[in-house]
Design a protein around this nucleic acid. Structure first.
Length: 298
DNA sequence: CACGCGTGGTC
DNA sequence: TGACCAAGCGT
C-alpha cells in the first residue's frame, strides 16, 4: 500500500496507533479532562526540552500557586524564575510570565483557542501553538515535535532518525499524515507523540512493542542505521551556560538582593563570570541593584 | 539556518 | 564515563 511518493500510507497507521494509545497512554495531570488550557500551556512550556519526570513536581507547584494566567501575570517576573526551579532554560519562565500578561491584556485572561493568537504569545512557537490548540481545544493541527518527527521518519520515510533540525518537509509530511476529521486528528496528535516518547524512542526503540511494526517503512527496510551527518554534541562543562546556571542558582536561593561578592564565589573565571552575568541581565533574568548587588527581576 | 540557551538521567 | 538525549524558541 504505497502512495505516489513511494511511502506507506499514513492512513493505515491511524487505527493501530490510536488503539495502542488508549491502552498505554501515561496518566499525566495536564491530560486530565478538567485540566484546562492554562494547565496544558504551562505543561508545554515546561516540557520544551525538559523530561516529564522532572516537570511533574514543578508543574504541580506552579498550578497550585497560579491556577489562572492572571495569578501569574500580577507577580513580578522574578517569582516565575524562582518557581522555575531547576527545569533549565529559565528564559522559558520569563516567557511564560510574559505570555500570561499578554493573555490578560489581549484575551481577557483566558488562553486563546485560536492558533494565530497562540503563536503571537511570547515563547509560543509552531509546535507549542499547535499543541495547545490540539490538546486543549481538540482542533486539527499537525503537532510536530521531535517525537513525531522521529515516528514519521521511521514509519513513513524509512530512515532511522529524522533530520537534525526540523524542516518544511517534516511539517508537510505531518500534515499529510493527519486524519481528516477533527476529533480523530486531535487524538492522533497525542497518540503519535506518545508512541515516540514510549516506544519509538531515539536510542533503543522497542519495536517489539510497536503497534505499527508490520507497517513501518524503516523496519520493513531492515532497520538500516542512521547514515546522516553527525549530530552536534552539546558540551556543558565550563560553558557560559553552566556559569549562568550557577549564578542564577545563587540568586534563586536568596530571598532578596545578593552582593556581587557572593556571586563571584560561584564561578572561578572572572571574565567568563562577568560575561555570563551581563548576559543574564541582558536577558532580563537578573536585575542589577545599585552598583554591586543583584536580584531576580521585579 | 545555525546557534545559544540549563539541567539531569541514561547506557 | 562521557556522549547522547529530553513535548523548542528566538535571533
Amino acid at each position: 500500500m504505497l502512495d505516489q511518493s513511494g511511502s506507506p500510507t499514513a492512513e493505515a497507521l491511524h487505527a493501530p496507533v490510536l488503539r495502542w494509545y488508549d491502552a498505554n497512554a501515561r496518566v499525566l495531570p495536564w491530560r486530565e479532562p478538567d485540566a484546562g488550557a492554562w494547565a496544558v500551556m504551562v505543561s508545554e512550556f515546561m516540557l520544551q526540552q525538559t523530561p516529564v519526570s522532572r516537570v511533574l513536581p514543578a508543574y504541580e507547584a506552579w498550578l497550585e500557586r497560579w491556577p489562572k494566567p492572571v495569578d501569574l501575570a500580577v507577580e513580578p517576573p522574578g517569582e516565575a524564575v524562582r518557581a522555575w526551579d531547576r527545569l533549565g532554560y529559565p528564559r522559558r519562565a520569563l516567557r511564560l510570565h510574559a505570555a500570561a500578561q499578554a493573555i490578560v491584556e489581549r484575551h481577557g485572561g483566558d488562553v486563546p483557542d485560536d492558533h494565530a493568537a497562540l503563536l503571537a504569545l511570547p515563547g509560543v512557537g509552531t509546535y507549542t501553538a499547535a499543541a495547545i490548540a490540539s490538546f486543549a481545544f481538540g482542533q486539527r493541527h499537525a503537532v510536530v515535535d521531535t517525537n513525531v518527527r522521529r515516528v514519521l521518519a521511521r514509519a513513513l520515510t524509512g530512515v532511522a532518525q529524522p533530520t537534525i533540525s526540523p524542516t518544511a518537509a517534516d511539517q508537510r509530511l505531518a500534515v499529510s499524515a493527519l486524519p481528516a476529521d477533527e476529533p480523530t486528528a486531535a487524538r492522533w496528535a497525542v497518540a503519535s507523540m506518545e508512541l515516540g516518547a514510549l516506544v519509538c524512542t531515539a536510542r533503543t526503540p522497542r519495536c517489539g512493542d510497536c503497534p505499527i511494526r508490520s507497517r513501518c517503512a524503516w523496519v520493513l527496510a531492515g532497520s538500516p542505521p542512521y547514515d546522516g551527518p553527525p549530530r552536534r554534541g552539546q558540551t556543558y562543562e565550563g560553558t557560559d551556560r553552566q556559569a549562568r546556571g550557577r549564578l542564577l542558582a545563587v540568586l534563586r536561593a536568596a530571598s532578596g538582593a545578593v552582593p556581587k561578592k557572593t556571586l563571584d564565589a560561584s564561578w572561578p573565571d572572572a571574565t567568563q563570570r562577568d560575561r555570563a552575568l551581563d548576559g543574564l541581565v541582558a536577558d532580563g533574568l537578573v536585575e542589577p541593584l545599585g552598583r554591586n548587588r543583584y536580584r531576580l527581576p521585579s
